[in-house]
Amino acid sequence: MPLTTEQESRHLEKRHRKARFFAIFCAAITWSSVLLLAVLLYQVSIEGFRWLDWQFISSFPSRFPERAGIKSALVGTIWLISLVALISIPVGVSTALYLEEFAGKGKISKIIEVNVANLAGVPSIVYGILGLAIFVRFFALERSLISGALTMSLLILPVIIIASREAIKTVPQGIRNAAYSLGATKWQTTWAHVLPASFPGIMTGVILALSRSIGETAPLIMIGAMTFVAFLPEGPMDSFTAMPIQIYNWVSRPQEEFHELAAAGIIVLLAVLLAMNATAIFIRNRTERRMK
């Protein structure tokens, strides 16, 4: 007897065809978005490559394109991102831990959950207005790095909280039970087992959130980051500029050279973004491997 009848094999053939079609469909979509990104990069490179040299990276902005550079914006962005990471990661992860592990499943957690999810969808300019009112004016932090970092942290907190909660949810209950049955307190269980086990997932959320904040312009303009800064910030209270603002500024000038400078700025911005993500992914994979 043959393994399958003719009718069965025809049916099987059809199912295989469906699977193949779906695989090709997905691959096509993936590659088209990669292609789009490649075209964008190509375009930007062509335009900006000419300007991309050490002089560009190590110079302050200037009225003369050949003397202008991105130094203050680059340093400002690095400052900003570091502060945002320092503020948003501990706050976001603690919030997620609290909501998942300690708060219980009552009405209040439900309300908080819905609110956080909605906050993730609020336009960034609204956070800018909030930051202006609260940090710049009310707390009188002025148009400083710390105002920018706090505003930006508010903006990305929902993303970090939601991603961290999802990561914490995936930790098997068995691990918690094991810890409790050994006489561990809730805190010991959370700190020694739940947090490490959800770390890779939390890192993914943090990477996404920080990547978003590095490119955000609107809230920074709102709280009044400057567009022409010819000095480097030395502390969180100093005024600053950031790369997206510098790029925006260059793009909005009439001269063609400045548009090319903007392209060069975009390349630097992407490089910083890539470096940051690579570091985070490296850390994540190392801890992931350690846990296996």
Binding site: P172, G174, I175, A178, S181, H193, P196, M291, K292
Partner: peptide, 11 residues
């Protein structure tokens, strides 16, 4: 102490 139905070693 307790041992559970499904083995649950820490990772």
């Amino acid at each position: 102490g307790m041992v559970f139905q499904k083995p649950n070693p820490f990772p």
